[in-house]
Write a protein that binds this DNA or RNA. Structure first.
Length: 895
RNA sequence: GGGCGGUUAGCUCAGUUGGUUAGAGCGCUACGUUGACAUCGUAGAGGUCACAAGUUCGAAUCUUGUACCGCCCACCA
């Protein structure tokens, strides 16, 4: 590793081999002798391709895990994949469709084999892709929700909940996807606001004495109506309750019932009841013993329960036809536009059909209670905090969870039904049954599979071997952080907490970091269908993983979305790439100027650099490094990762590269003494900065760090110690003195630019009316001022420096004045205008401040310290203005 | 319908308990190939902090209202 570095950083030659190097050394795997820190990776779908959402999510987790690993924790970041029941089955069914087949043509066994083959083929793609981001997850421990081990654990959980009475089977209205042909949970039926219509239909009374008008957004459901309901106290309908209605279209007699659940203020106050297709209707109907008529087939066509002429019609065609028939009969009262929320399948976006169906449910209230308590007692820490209130609200209003799915890909429900009619036992079992435990008769297993989330909610403990424990479980449960997008707060996070509490007695993690969503410049979520996605692999290819990570992390304020432009990768990711290149060159510069041993910085040892040898510039950069360690560490700890990343960025670029390295060049080149001290300081602060940046940009920092002097072969930054701020490095005197020198240099440069002094030409400058800090800076950093301002001579003069007319001026914030004689270059009118503008701005500020200080209220009410500070500020400004006025007088400027 | 966030420079965003002459990166302008870096350097332009009222000696920051954007929840059919 001693070959010279190329002038440009090339991530491609570095990243893949370095990743293998880390992995070969088992650095991603916890060593087992220190306090653990655990993050469970949200398992990507087994057939997924990496997208920018993963890029963001994985970057955040890797920053956290690398930070804690360097801080000495036994960091475990466990990766895994989710079998993703409906999603994966849909993918394979689409492939089958291309062959003109359906899963039913293959049959259950063959279809599952087909999916398994597909998963085997594509299943590891996503895990490979994760590696390219530099994710330091533990590949020696991965999980798959459909592995034999996790499947056994799923059965254990199911049977255990069943035995506790927390799982039951029942006939209720569920959300049904007519395209996926399965039940969905409430969470999987996503509500979307749509512009629909509301139809007011006339229902004639059977005795011909009148009619009652009902309102509906789904007229086709009237085919399954079994009653009309009104509020018991509704005087309009008082005489009608108990009467019969002759339903149009279907020509069926149904009763009018009274129920308090009806809102008399909505619509006409009368509601048609379709118990098989609406949850509220079902509830009312069961109170009144009314029948439920399911009028639809699984794919949402009208079934044989509907009139013959409707059978086979799609529900939306049936809707049109029902409306048409009402209209033809003069029974359509009116149609109005109506905006309302309609459930859509979260996998295929089909409008969900509420449908009466036999399903399995988990009784959630008992599970939610401790999960809510864990939030209320502060055990759970949400970042950002407001997500906690969403969590609590959901827990408070929790509904039972429909866990059965009418698909084939997943964990089959471990319940067996006895075929023996006289027995009919239903048995939940941890092992496959071949005969009925009660009567010994033949059994058949439930056809349905479990919701994918039923198994993924368990991974915080099942991935560690539960219900067995080879030591991993007790060591790494409970974990610490969970990092994910807010979309799956209820699907996954909330349920992990509930199941963790139920089966392990402790929450699986205490910090829940919910980051934002990756969006395009129009703030649309990136998606394949919109074509506005960014492929992270493209970004890695073009800019490197470090650049991707830095861009994403530095742009991620807590709880906000990340906006990236898919049409302009350059503007998004060049910042990260440029920074990597800058860092590379800082390293190249420092390394190329080392010769032989670099002395350590110590307190007294003979061959160490001691404090007395440090120049003001050295002390300044050490102080800046010390501040940066505190700032970055604080940022990482508080999960303000952008603050941490930007703090190190500023240090490396604006302090180290722009100033310190420039300041020490003469010493490094031997033109000034103290080269070995400068080298020691540069190496020390660079080393510290690399450590601070490693969580964000692991590849380049590791590469450079290993080349620093004193490294032993095979030593890795990944597990190097996190820097600790040394109070001896904090140095406010050096900070202000060096800052003053920076101000002087900037002032002279500014004048040079203003007057377009050729870059090669030196200037002279005089510092007058100097405050103590500028004076000290001139004494300690004079040579640097000369060189960086390209000044042949800078003098520290008294009140009346030779600042004649042909000079340009600048005033520093402490009232110190910088005068640069420029001879013919100075355009008096221009200089007057320049200074005049400056003076006017100051005057304005001074007037405002004088008024403030002249205000009795302010002086008496504001804290003394604030008043004192304002007084000092005023004095300083007045000083500055006096200098400016003086300059302008000398120049003969018009007032 | 209920609850919650946001609105700061052309763009993406900082601004921690009210006290700055309101900041950064990118973009833009001018100049520049100085022995780490043109994926660079130096300097500069650019904002009545969405709007209105209020509290306060003092508001980007606190209160209320308005407008627009977004998120979560919801069995008014």
């Amino acid at each position: 590793m001693t070959e010279p570095l190329a002038p440009q950083y090339d991530p491609k030659t570095v990243e893949a081999p370095l990743y293998r190097w880390w992995q070969d050394r088992h650095l991603f795997t916890p060593r087992g002798d220190r306090s653990p820190y655990v993050i469970m990776m949200p398992p990507p779908n087994v057939t997924a391709q990496l997208h920018m959402g993963h890029g963001l999510n994985l970057s955040v987790q890797d920053v956290m895990i690398r930070f804690e690993r360097m801080r000495g924790r036994d960091a475990l970041w466990m990766p895994g994949t989710d079998h993703a029941g409906i999603a994966t089955q849909n993918v394979v069914e689409k492939l089958l469709a291309k062959e003109g087949k359906t899963r039913f043509d293959l049959g259950r066994e063959a279809f599952i084999q087909r999916v398994e083959a597909f998963v085997a083929e594509t299943g590891s793609t996503i895990l490979e892709q994760i590696r390219s981001l530099g994710a330091s997850c533990d590949w020696e421990h991965t999980y798959y929700t459909l592995s034999p081990e996790l499947s056994a654990a799923v059965r254990e959980v199911f049977v255990s909940l069943y035995e506790k009475g927390l799982i039951y089977r029942g006939k209720y209205i569920i959300n049904w996807c007519p395209r996926c042909l399965t039940a969905l949970s409430n969470e999987e039926a996503e509500k979307e606001e749509v512009d629909g219509q509301i139809w007011r239909l006339r229902y004639p009374l059977a005795d011909g004495s009148g009619q009652i008008i009902v309102a509906t957004t789904r007229p086709e459901t009237m085919l399954g109506d079994t009653a009309v309901a009104v509020h018991p106290d509704d005087e309009r309908y008082a005489g009608l309750v108990g009467k019969m209605i002759r339903l149009p279209v279907v020509d069926r007699l149904v009763p009018i019932v009274a129920d308090a659940a009806v809102d008399p203020a909505f619509g006409t106050g009368a509601v048609k009841l379709t118990p098989a297709h609406d949850p509220l209707d079902f509830e009312i109907a069961s109170r009144h013993g009314l029948p439920a008529i399911d009028v639809m087939t699984p794919d949402a066509r009208i079934n044989e329960a509907g009139p013959e002429r409707f059978q086979g019609l799609d529900r939306f065609d049936a809707r049109k036809r029902v409306v048409a028939e009402f209209e033809a009969a003069g029974l359509l009262d009116k149609v109005e536009p109506h905006r309302h929320a309609v459930g859509h399948c979260y996998r295929c976006d089909t409008v969900v059909e509420p449908r009466l169906s036999d399903q399995w449910f988990v009784k959630m209230a008992p599970l939610a209670k401790p999960a809510l308590e864990a939030y209320r007692d502060g055990t759970l820490n949400f970042v950002p905090e407001r997500r906690g209130t969403e969590y609590a609200l959901w827990m408070e209003n929790i509904r039972d969870w429909c866990i059965s799915r009418q698909i084939w890909w997943g964990h089959r429900i471990p319940v067996w039904y006895c075929d023996n009619g006289s027995c009919g036992a239903m048995t939940a079992s941890r092992v496959d049954l071949t005969s009925c435990p009660s009567c010994g008769g033949a059994v058949r297993q439930d056809e349905d599979v479990l919701d994918t989330w039923f198994s993924s909610q368990l991974v915080p403990f099942t991935s560690l071997g539960w219900p067995d424990d080879d030591g991993s479980l007790s060591r790494f449960y409970p974990g610490h952080a969970l990092v994910t997008a807010p979309e799956i707060l209820f699907f996954w996070v909330a349920r992990m907490i509930m199941s963790g509490l139920e089966f392990k007695g402790q929450v699986p993690f205490t910090t829940i970091y919910l980051h934002g969503t990756v969006r395009d410049t129009q703030h649309r979520k990136m998606s394949k269908s919109l074509g506005n996605g960014i492929d992270p692999l493209d970004v890695v290819e073009q800019y490197g993983a470090d650049a991707l990570r830095f861009t994403v992390i530095a742009g991620l304020a807590v709880g906000t979305d990340v906006i990236l432009d898919p049409d302009d990768l350059e503007s998004s990711f060049s910042t990260g790439r440029n920074f990597a290149n800058k860092l590379w060159n800082v390293g190249r510069f420092i390394l190329s100027n080392l010769d032989g041993e670099v002395r350590p910085i110590g307190s007294s040892a003979a061959n160490a650099v001691i404090r007395d040898e440090l120049s003001v510039a050295d002390r300044w950069i050490l102080a800046r490094a010390e501040a940066t360690i505190r700032e970055a560490t604080d940022g990482y700890e508080r999960l303000r990762l952008n603050d941490a990343a930007n703090a190190v960025y500023r240090f490396l670029w604006n302090d180290l590269a722009d100033w310190y390295l420039e300041a020490i060049k003469p010493r490094l080149y031997g033109d000034q003494p103290g080269g070995d001290v400068a080298r020691a300081v540069a190496v020390r602060v660079f080393d510290q900065a690399l450590r601070l940046l490693h969580p964000v940009m692991p590849f380049i920092t590791e590469t450079l760090w290993q080349r620093l002097p004193g490294r032993t072969d095979g030593e890795s930054l990944m597990v190097a110690a996190w820097p600790v701020p040394d109070p001896a490095d904090a140095d406010s005197v050096a900070l202000s003195e060096f800052g003053a020198a920076q101000d002087v240099i900037t002032a002279i440069r500014s004048i040079r630019a203003e007057y377009q002094v050729p870059p090669g030409q030196t200037v002279r400058a005089a510092l007058t009316r100097c405050g103590p800090v500028v004076t000290a800076a001139f004494q300690s950093l004079g040579p640097m001022m000369h060189r960086l301002a390209k000044a042949s001579e800078i003098t520290l003069a008294g009140e009346d420096a030779g600042n004649g007319a042909a000079a340009a001026h600048a005033v520093l914030t402490d009232g110190s004045s910088v005068t640069v004689p420029l001879g013919d270059l100075v355009d008096t009118a221009k200089e007057c205008a320049r200074l005049g503008q400056e003076a006017a701005r100051l005057t304005q500020a001074i007037v405002t401040l004088e008024q403030k200080l002249g205000n009795e209220q302010f002086v008496s009410r504001a804290p003394a310290a604030v008043v004192q500070k304002e007084r000092e500020k005023l004095a300083s400004w007045q000083d500055q203005r006096a200098v400016l006025d003086d300059k302008r007088t000398r120049l003969g400027c018009p007032s």
